[in-house]
């Protein structure tokens, strides 16, 4: 799905940015996600419950934000890459209607047996540019892209 060229181990550079992914979850998407993930915690669809808990509206599922970060990574690495590990912390609340931008940056390259691993820091910024959702991830990529 990646629009750019999929990364290979020989070419990827520490400090390189992962192509960002923008998402704008709305209340409809939260309901779809609640159903698809079997998560019926009410602060994600019942405004009265959400405001009673001190939120200004229903809030975006943390796990949906994890799904967005995973999509950014799988879009980037393409069919030949594999997501190996991912860690995400929900430090800030996000609300539907806001534009969430997933970003990432390569922090290390290492070999583990026959796997070529690339470590990244990843995060989501809200529309005001605040990082609400920091994390890290490891992907496995081919050593090099075969020349066609």
């Amino acid at each position: 799905m990646g629009k750019g060229r999929a990364p290979c181990f020989d070419d990827v550079e520490v400090g390189e940015a992962v192509p960002p992914l923008q998402k704008r979850p709305d209340t409809r998407q939260l309901v779809m996600y609640a159903g698809a993930s079997d998560d019926y915690v009410q602060i994600h669809y019942d405004k009265d419950v959400a405001t009673a808990a001190g939120h200004r509206s229903v809030i975006v599922h943390g796990a949906l934000k994890s799904a967005f970060i995973a999509q950014m990574l799988t879009d980037w690495i393409g069919a030949a890459g594999r997501l190996v590990a991912m860690e995400v912390s929900y430090r800030g609340i996000d609300y539907p209607g806001d534009t969430l931008t997933c970003r990432g940056r390569v922090t290390a390259k290492r070999r583990d047996g026959d796997r070529n691993l690339v470590d990244c820091e990843v995060w989501i910024e809200n529309g005001a540019g605040q990082v609400t959702t920091p994390g890290k991830a490891t992907v496995a990529v081919p050593a090099r892209i075969p020349r066609g």
């Binding site: 915690v41 994890s66 995400v88």
Partner: peptide
Amino acid sequence: ILDGGSQYTF
């Protein structure tokens, strides 16, 4: 209840 985060290995 709030979700604090997750750490996955695939």
